[in-house]
Each structure stands twice: as structure tokens, then as C-alpha cells.
Simulated scan of single mutants.
Amino acid sequence: MERLPQFIYLDSKIVGTAKQIATFFEEGIFASETTVLIKKYKHKSAKQIAAIFRLHGIAYRFVLAQDLDTLPKGVMFYPFNAQSNCRAVANRHLTHIFITHGESNKAASVKPIIRIYDYVLTAGQAGIDRFLAHGIFSQHDVDSGRLITAGDTFIGKTGLSKQGKKCIFYAPTWEGGIEQENYSSLAYWQQVAERIIQKVVEYQIDTLVIRSHPNTGHRLAYYQENLFQLAKTCMQHNLKVIAYQPNLALSLFQQWKWKKLGIKFSSNLKDFQAVFALCDVSAIETQLLNEDISYELFYPAYQSTMAIPNLNVYHEVAPMDIQAAWLSLHDAAQHKIYWINTHFEQMALSNRITFLINQLSQYERN
């Protein structure tokens, strides 16, 4: 098959989205000849987004709607849903593939807009069942190859190692673009801190590593303060607190306040291994499953807005209040197989895009 030009389309003013795309290049999933096309906005974040791609040596350019119409034959990948994606997919010279930026049970995972793409990738059968259960796709779409499992290709990594200093790992998600999509446990940070301290005592661990979502505080700025207060409470119980700095969008004053308290920053989580993790309904759960890290899941009360296809695999550990509870898995090994197709385990990340595109061409020929 001829080598087609490859593009990634980004329509976002959130700087964290650029960091998430950069990770795909760092891991070798996308090659240097892949170009990121960024919707042009008159917004201060444009320079920051461009700086991130320059830092990582990623080819990029800003585009207007009419620029999308002139793109040649090729493949366009979409890590995020956005309204202007509808304009991009109107160019039928391109094959349009939604790859997501991590797989989760958030309601945003099953928005009807996802039907606009030629192909949609999921990590495993759970993603397919999620779409079927919500009527987004039909069994015919599955049978015809429109939904394709890509294993752990696009789910990302926690950054933790199997060899580092033992820790409890806490990874809250952000507050979402709208309140109906807020799955962040930082809304109830006091109860979360209590649960972390319980786990510290249970596992006899003195270190807490926090990796917040890079968008934390984008819509609700006080979530950064909630995170600080959680860390402060844990330190009052003689815990060493390490915060993953690349995901923190702190002002100089906030950085000073965190450092004054004694919170340490780290840009590399490979120095740590998690003996246990606590996370929200988010893509982090898939990463923890993939890396065989035991965890509990913060489960908000507004579960009707969630897209969990098999909730019965969880059991309630402890209700936090009328708004939330902690859940854990009955059988993590079986759940991992359900969520993540193991077909790609022996294939290098750098070979997977080519393999997937060749797979799609076979579907089209058939």
C-alpha cells in the first residue's frame, strides 16, 4: 500500500491537549512526518500550544476551514471531538479515524458526533459494547469493520515503573468542559484525603504520588486549590507528597506556596512504583488495568451520565457520602482482557499505525 500523508487534527484552546498529543510522538506511535493541524484561534493559548510541539520536534501548522478542504489524499487522525471536526471530515480525499486520547467510561466517550468518522478505534471489546449499548453504532458497523480494536496503542501510560520507590498513586481527572461531565474527585477532596490516608496505613507506605489531569482548573480554577488542600492534609499525616509537575498549570505564586509547604515536584514518575492507586472515572483506569496496578475507582452519584458497559464487575468498597463511593474490581485480570485487546502486545508501538492503516485498506477492498 502506498504511503499516504498523515495528519492529526486539533481544535482546542486547552494547552493540555497539545501535551497529550505530544505523548503519542514521544512513545513512537506517530512518526516525525505526521503533521499536527491546529485550528487557528486568536487566543493566548495558541503560542503555548505551538511551543509544546516545537519543543518535541513535532511538525505542525495552524489552519482555517478552507485549508482543510485543500488537503490531498491521506489519513486524518482525531484525538478529540470538536465541532469543527465535522468540517474536516467533509474532505473525502482523506480517511478519517477517531483514535481518542485515552479510553474511559465518561459519557463523553459515547457522544453521537463520533459517527461522523470513517473508522473508530477502541482499546478492546468494552469500547465496542459501550457504543452498542448507547445506540451510537450497530452490530452492522462492527461486522463491516468500522469499529476496530487497537489494544493499548492510544491509552497512554501512568509513567510509573515496576522498580522505583513504593508509593500510593492518586490520579484525579479534571472538572470537564461542562458540569454534567465533571467526574473529578477533587470536588470532594476531604473524603478523598481520608481514603488515601486509610490506604497509606493499610500498605505501610510513606509516599503519595499525585498525577493530576493537565486540564485541572481550566473551567473551575479553585480545583487547583482543592488539590493543594488535599496534599496539605496528607502531609499533616506525615506523608511525603510528590506532584507530577508537567501536568500542573501553576502560577509562580502557587509554585512557591506548594514548595513552601514541602511538596516535591517530579518530572519523571519512573522513580516510583504504585502498590495501590486511586483514580476517577477517566482514562487513567485503563492505564492502571493495562499496567496491572490494583486500584479503587471514585464513582460519582450521577451515574446515569456514565457509560460503564458492565458495572457488575465492580463492588462498592465504601460510600463517601450521598454523592460518591469507592469501587474496586472483582476480577481485574478478566476485566483487563475485556477492556484491552491483547493482539498488539508483541508489536512495537512504532509499527502499529502502519498495521492499522493496512487493516483498514483490507476492509475497504472487501
Results as ranks from 00 to 15, higher is better:
Q273M: 10
I197F: 03
I357K: 03
A22I: 06
Y244F: 15
E194L: 11
I113A: 06
A193V: 10
D69G: 06
K257P: 00
L289P: 04
Y170Q: 04
A249P: 00
I116T: 12
E179C: 04
K40R: 14
N238T: 11
S294Q: 12
V281W: 00
I113L: 08
K47P: 02
G262C: 07
I148R: 10
L261T: 13
A171D: 01
L360A: 05
N91P: 03
A18G: 09
N247P: 00
H56L: 04
W339F: 05
H96D: 12
R115Q: 12
V63S: 09
F77V: 09
G262E: 09
E225R: 13
A243Y: 07
L37Q: 05
F228N: 05
Y363F: 13
Q229T: 08
F25P: 01
D152E: 10
K111E: 07
Q236G: 12
A123I: 03
P214H: 14
R61I: 02
I21C: 08
P79G: 06
E291R: 11
D280A: 14
A126W: 01
Y302D: 11
V120D: 00
G57Q: 08
N91A: 12
S161E: 03
E194G: 15
F24L: 15
N290E: 01
L64E: 14
T216K: 03
K264F: 04
N91Y: 06
H140G: 03
Y60C: 12
A243N: 03
A325D: 00
A324W: 00
Y222C: 10
H96P: 01
F25M: 10
D152S: 15
N351F: 01
H335M: 08
A31R: 08
N247M: 04
G217N: 07
Y203A: 07
Q254R: 10
R61F: 01
I99W: 01
L248S: 03
D271Q: 15
A318H: 06
A249C: 06
L261D: 07
I196M: 09
F131M: 15
S361G: 02
P112T: 06
L68C: 14
F253W: 01
G151M: 05
A31Y: 00
W258N: 05
L71M: 08
Q303M: 02
L356Y: 00
F25D: 09
G145A: 14
S109A: 14
V89I: 15
W326H: 08
N91W: 02
S282Y: 04
F228A: 13
N215G: 00
I205K: 08
D152P: 04
R219V: 13
N81D: 09
